[in-house]
Simulated scan of single mutants.
Amino acid sequence: MKTILAPLSLALLLGSNVVFADAEIEGIVDRHCQACHDAGLAGAPKLSDAASWAPRLETGIDAMAKTVISGKGAMPPKGTCFSCTEEQIHAAVEELVGRLQ
């Protein structure tokens, strides 16, 4: 029980500066982002296509996360991760960008 309470207490003390476990964010990307961005479904920029990501990267992670939160084109709001917080979406965008080839 102490193992669960200590990280939870720390997260509550940190407030909006919550740090997510890498595995949690990787799981979100794997479940909600990877398939469309691997295949380029419905116009999603492929992770292997650096040119399609260049203009998005110029806007920055914050702007990209806002786009994911509101949805764009065929991508629904929150990129299908309806239970994700805005902070988790932001972290997932960072993780996804880190996977660009």
Rank of each mutant, 00 (worst) to 15 (best):
A91Y: 06
E86W: 00
I25M: 08
R99A: 13
E26H: 11
S16R: 13
W53S: 05
V93F: 00
V29G: 12
C33A: 09
M64K: 01
I25R: 05
H90C: 04
G98N: 06
K66Y: 08
H32W: 12
P76E: 01
A21V: 03
A6Y: 13
G40D: 04
I4T: 10
A91L: 07
T80W: 15
Q34E: 15
L5I: 09
P7K: 00
L57V: 02
T3P: 10
I28E: 09
D49S: 01
G98P: 02
A35I: 14
M64G: 00
E86T: 04
E58P: 02
L47G: 10
C81T: 11
R56V: 02
I69W: 02
E26A: 12
T67Q: 05
E94M: 11
M64H: 06
P77W: 00
A63W: 05
I28C: 14
E26C: 13
P77H: 07
P77C: 03
A6F: 14
L47W: 08
L13H: 10
Q34P: 15
V97S: 08
I28H: 12
S83E: 13
P76G: 01
P77F: 06
M75N: 04
F20G: 02
Q34K: 15
E95A: 13
A74F: 10
A21N: 04
A92I: 08
T3S: 11
L47I: 10
G27R: 09
Q88N: 06
G73D: 07
E94W: 14
T85E: 03
M75P: 01
L14C: 11
I28M: 09
D30A: 15
H37D: 08
I4M: 06
H90V: 07
I4F: 06
A50H: 10
L41G: 15
L5Q: 09
M1C: 13
E58M: 03
A91R: 03
S83M: 12
K78S: 05
M64S: 01
G27Q: 09
D30W: 14
V29H: 11
D22E: 10
A54W: 01
V93G: 00
K2F: 15
L12W: 12
L47N: 09
E26D: 11
M1I: 15
G79Y: 08
W53E: 06
K66W: 07
E95Q: 12
G15T: 03
G40S: 05
K46H: 09
L57T: 05
K2G: 15
P7L: 07
A35D: 13
E86G: 01
P7D: 07
L10E: 10
A39Q: 14
H37I: 02
I4A: 07
P76D: 01
E24M: 10
F20T: 05
G60K: 01
S9H: 14
A6V: 11
A54I: 07
G15D: 04
L41Y: 13
L14V: 08
A11K: 01
H32P: 09
M1P: 12
K46C: 09
K46M: 10
G40N: 02
I25S: 09
L100F: 02
I28N: 11
D30H: 14
V68G: 06
K72L: 00
I4H: 05
I89E: 04
P77D: 04
Q88W: 05
A92H: 09
S70I: 06
Q88D: 06
I4E: 04
T85V: 00
K46R: 09
D30N: 15
L14Q: 12
G43K: 02
